[in-house]
């Protein structure tokens, strides 16, 4: 088990974020716990120059409240830096990746060398882009990720970080509940929905803010 995985496991068992052993947030405002606006409060207009992805950090499906531990809302730089530092990251994208703007960001992340798991029908848009992309069923992937002996999509080893976007909300929310409770892998949502079962997540975002946030993530990744 990697140090990160051990830290995450401890964090999961304790039900609170571990500040010492996991990737530290790079911006000060990331340290504060995510705010929980009332049910009526909604996505704010993205008029600000700075993209704030920590707002509206409430489960997108209103009733999708799993329990006391829910994802920490983060700014884009956090998943960006964590992706950049991870030894073996995996990006998962699904059937909501086909939109031109969203797809371009998935491709951009893939171009940095990060392996992509194309779940659902995502492969139809990603297969011809010259990326390290593999089709796999999301439910099966969740199962395999919980198995510490799994050697990954290419047989070269397991993953220490899973990042996802562009997947049917409730479907991936359920799938990652397996990872949350039965694995040591760190899971980050960079989707436009707040995903409580991830370790970290953006809040619920409008489309333009979402795309801008993905660009912020990509900025942190090493160029190839």
């Amino acid at each position: 088990m990697t140090k990160i995985a051990q830290a995450v496991k401890r964090e999961k068992m304790a039900g609170k974020p571990s500040e010492k052993n996991v990737e530290k947030p790079v911006e000060k405002n990331l340290e504060k716990p995510s705010e929980m606006p009332s049910g009526k409060e909604e996505v704010k207009p993205a008029a600000e120059k700075v993209i704030d992805t920590t707002r509206s950090a409430v489960p997108f499906d209103t009733a999708n409240i799993p329990g006391p531990k829910m994802a920490r809302a983060v700014m884009p730089a956090v998943p960006g830096k964590m992706l950049a530092r991870a030894k073996r990251p995996l990006l998962i994208v699904g059937s909501e990746v086909h939109d031109t703007d969203v797809l371009a960001r998935a491709v951009a992340i893939g171009k940095t060398g990060i392996q992509i798991a194309a779940v659902g029908n995502a492969y139809t848009s990603l297969g011809d882009k010259g990326l390290d992309v593999h089709y796999i069923n999301m439910h099966a992937l969740a199962s395999y990720l919980c198995d510490p002996n799994w050697k990954g999509l290419d047989g070269k080893g397991g993953y220490d970080l899973v990042v996802f976007f562009g997947i049917t909300y409730y479907y991936v929310s359920q799938a990652i509940s397996a990872l949350k409770n039965f694995s040591n892998i760190k899971v980050i949502s960079i989707d436009k929905y707040y995903h409580p079962n991830a370790d970290m997540s953006f809040g619920n975002l409008k489309d333009d803010v979402f795309i801008a946030a993905l660009d912020e993530v990509i900025k942190e990744l090493p160029k190839r």
Partner: peptide
Amino acid sequence: YNPVYTPTSDMCDYCTYGKCDLTGNK
């Protein structure tokens, strides 16, 4: 065919001991 669990709730509230937080397979 290993059972794969994807809980909708990380808690149990079946009895008066609870609610119990089972997050992380506690």
